[in-house]
Simulated assay, not measured.
Amino acid sequence: MSKIINVLLVGVGGQGTILASKILTHVAIAQGYEVKMSEIHGMAQRGGSVVTQVRMGENVYSPVIEAGEADFIVAFEQLEAYRWAHFLKKDGVLIVNTQKIVPLTVLIGAATYPESILVDLKERVECFIGLDGLKLASEAGNAKATNVVLMGVLSKYMDFPADSWQNALVARIPAKMLELNKKAFAYGVAMAK
């Protein structure tokens, strides 16, 4: 367990990025990892960026992930994936929800939303997984479970037992929403290659 695993979760306020990081943290701690987590909220309540860094391993001294060090990036929105892709290791895994959330600067006409984000990322990243997490979450019963769909995808690339992920869902999701979140998680697992 001496290797440190770095996971960057990036999205927009209201997408459940922080809950997803708490699910991941719960799983890692259950496996005996030391875990450090850091959250950055950029006007999250108004649709601003939210970035969570999770580092796990035997001796983790800082929650900060440097550029080029992320083993995994889970992006809840494609522009956020684009902004943070340089943090991914050469052999890292980039999981991208293909949803677009137009930032305020685009809405007021001060900027434009790049059109070729997904094409560019596919060309630059060796292990790129793009999926419509919002659609899958809606099919599972609630669009707000997109974060859990993405955790399902991530679970297929991490060496943690399936029951640890289920236990984390039970611990972190309110009981009345648990079954649909379990379904959303299963949809994500099924989408992973």
Rank of each mutant, 00 (worst) to 15 (best):
V7Q: 07
L9F: 07
L9V: 00
V10M: 07
V10T: 15
G13V: 00
Q15F: 05
I29G: 01
Q31V: 01
E34M: 06
A44M: 04
Q45V: 02
R46L: 02
G47N: 04
V50R: 07
V50Y: 01
V51D: 01
V51I: 08
R55D: 06
E58T: 03
E58L: 03
V60R: 01
P63S: 08
G68I: 08
F72W: 10
E77L: 15
L79S: 11
L79W: 12
E80S: 14
A81S: 05
H86A: 14
K90F: 03
G92I: 00
N97I: 15
T98V: 13
T98W: 00
Q99R: 15
K100V: 13
I101K: 15
V102T: 14
V106S: 07
G109E: 01
T112W: 00
Y113R: 02
E115C: 01
E115W: 00
S116M: 11
D120K: 14
D120G: 12
K122Q: 06
K122W: 01
R124Y: 02
C127W: 04
F128G: 05
A140I: 10
V148F: 10
V149P: 11
S155P: 09
S155C: 10
A162H: 09
D163C: 02
N167S: 11
V170W: 06
A175I: 07
M177S: 15
A184S: 14
G188M: 07
V189P: 13
A190L: 12
